[in-house]
Design a protein around this nucleic acid. Structure first.
Length: 198
DNA sequence: GGAATGATGTACT
DNA sequence: GTACATCATTCCG
């Protein structure tokens, strides 16, 4: 089922500053590598080229790498960080605006054994805390950039609405430009949220 | 063709 | 808290 056919995902066409906190509590499920893995989203960051965000990878315009960001909501953008770690974004908003939500941390709930094997650690707290760890645990690589939410990667709604008071907004992690914008959102009570860098 | 850069994670002191 | 691994991408000449 494509995102256009699935009313479940219609809200992904909205503004990333609204969609990002709304993604908290949703489950991100990966069926990559013939294993089912995933968990509950507890930490995200919004990147908004259309709002003049200098921290967005799309800030200098459309390039081969960032092309998926310019697609409409539901596209997946994956980039390589420091030559080592892949990080996954869900593109939101209308095509051309390059709005993206970086998924920074999950509470692991599905396929713990598979994720532990991929990560080569057993501590559940180290499986999906941080964007690089998360992508590794779910089997996500650069080859998945440009794909769309669907059967391989999918979202499942939370059983109940997340109370706005449970969500904290703060500065994004690890960026140099526009570091003052409070576009990081996370669940206050979750022990699976990554710690901000000093 | 070459150099600088980085939305990170791990290991070690 | 600091060091450093490691490479796709982008920009410059």
């Amino acid at each position: 089922m494509t995102i256009a056919q699935n009313p479940l995902y219609n809200w992904l066409e909205g503004d990333c500053l609204r969609v990002a906190p709304k993604l908290l509590g949703w489950k991100l499920i990966s069926n990559l590598g013939s294993y089912k893995t995933g968990g509950r989203i507890v930490e995200v960051e919004a990147y908004y080229y259309g709002a003049g965000d200098p921290a967005s990878h799309a800030y200098r315009g459309l390039t081969p790498r960032t092309a998926p960001m310019f697609e409409r909501g539901g596209a997946i953008y994956v980039y390589l960080s420091h030559g080592l770690h892949c990080c996954m974004n869900i593109v939101v908003g209308p095509a051309g605006e390059a709005q993206a939500v970086l998924i920074r941390a999950l509470e692991p709930t599905v396929g713990l054994e598979t994720m532990a094997a991929r990560r080569r650690v057993s501590d559940p707290r180290l499986l999906t805390r941080g964007p690089g760890r998360l992508a590794q645990a779910l089997g996500i690589g650069l080859q998945h950039s440009g794909s769309r939410l669907g059967t391989q990667l999918q979202l499942k709604p939370p059983p109940q609405l997340i109370a706005p008071a449970a969500i904290i907004a703060g500065p994004r992690v690890g960026i140099k430009r526009a570091a003052e914008r409070p576009w990081r959102f996370y669940l206050a009570e979750s022990p699976f949220v990554s710690s901000p860098r000093a």
